[in-house]
Each structure stands twice: as structure tokens, then as C-alpha cells.
Nucleic acid binder design. Structure first.
Length: 136
DNA sequence: GCCAACGTTGGC
DNA sequence: GCCAACGTTGGC
């Protein structure tokens, strides 16, 4: 079974709408070992929650892994990797950070536990819970 | 703008 | 190898 993930992006820098417009993008620039491990664990077809940090602070859409991890060309040290993602759909209703914090079934979520992590795993149960909250 | 939580760097 | 200092992220 496919795994699920959550990726963060500042909408100022790259929003879900940008992804929809582009149709496909290289998800690079991750410079954190824990996040990089998650990128490496992604399989083609894995679905991702796309979260807007700082502005919005909400999950706005779903994306999918189109290409598994490869060396991040923007990293001179060659230690980090990137993946390619494509948009799947915008959620009917965004799910805010406050909503997620208030939902006891999401208490163990990695992104809530470690707020600075830009790529984090999402369990099947957490995934279903969030989609339900999004009325999706 | 501030601060907490981390990660990284560099002196020893 | 330890740890203090510093930088970055992201919520508030």
C-alpha cells in the first residue's frame, strides 16, 4: 500500500495554485536530514498533503509523487535529494493547523510534533481523518 | 516582531 | 567528541 506524506511550502514562494499551473514540479531545496530521509522513502504514486506555511497555515490540496528521489541539483554538497510531484486536486475545504491541533485523532502527527519539519509522514488513519475534515 | 525548537558550525 | 553560539523555520 502506498504511503502518505505532508509537504510544506510558503505560498509566497510556491503555492498549490503554482503547482496546478505548472502541472509538475521538482520538489527540491530540502536541507534537512530527517526530511530528506522521507523524500527517499517516497514511492511513485504516493500521495501528499500540500500545506501552506506562514500564510494560510492550512492543507489546501493533494499532490502525487511522479518521480522518486534523485540528487538535488541545487545542492552543491550532493547530500540531498529531490522528487517530482504533480497536482491531484484541491481539497473541497482547506484544513487549518488549528483544526488539526484540535482533532485528537491527529495528536500523533509528525508535523504537529515537530513543526519545523518540511516533509513528514502521514499515517493512513491521519490521512482519512484529514480528508474527512476537508469534506473531500 | 518575538520566541521556541531544532540543526549546524566551530573552538577547544 | 562536546557544547556554546549562531542561523533558520514557522507559529503566534
Amino acid at each position: 500500500m502506498a504511503s502518505h506524506w505532508l509537504v510544506k511550502s510558503e505560498p509566497n514562494a510556491y503555492s498549490f495554485d503554482d503547482l496546478v499551473r505548472d502541472g509538475r514540479t521538482v520538489w527540491d531545496g530540502v536541507r534537512n536530514n530527517a526530511a530528506a530521509l522521507h523524500l527517499k522513502a517516497m514511492a511513485k504514486g504516493d500521495q501528499l498533503l500540500f500545506y501552506h506555511s506562514q500564510e494560510g497555515k492550512e492543507v489546501v490540496g493533494i499532490a502525487e509523487v511522479a518521480k522518486t528521489a534523485f540528487p538535488d541539483k541545487s545542492d552543491p554538497t550532493g547530500r540531498f535529494v529531490a522528487v517530482e510531484i504533480v497536482p491531484v486536486r484541491r481539497l473541497k475545504q482547506s484544513v487549518t493547523l488549528a483544526d488539526m491541533k484540535a482533532e485528537s485523532r491527529l495528536a500523533g502527527m509528525e508535523m504537529l510534533r515537530q513543526s519545523r519539519l518540511s516533509v513528514s509522514p502521514v499515517s493512513d488513519e491521519q490521512w482519512k481523518t484529514i480528508l474527512k475534515m476537508a469534506k473531500d
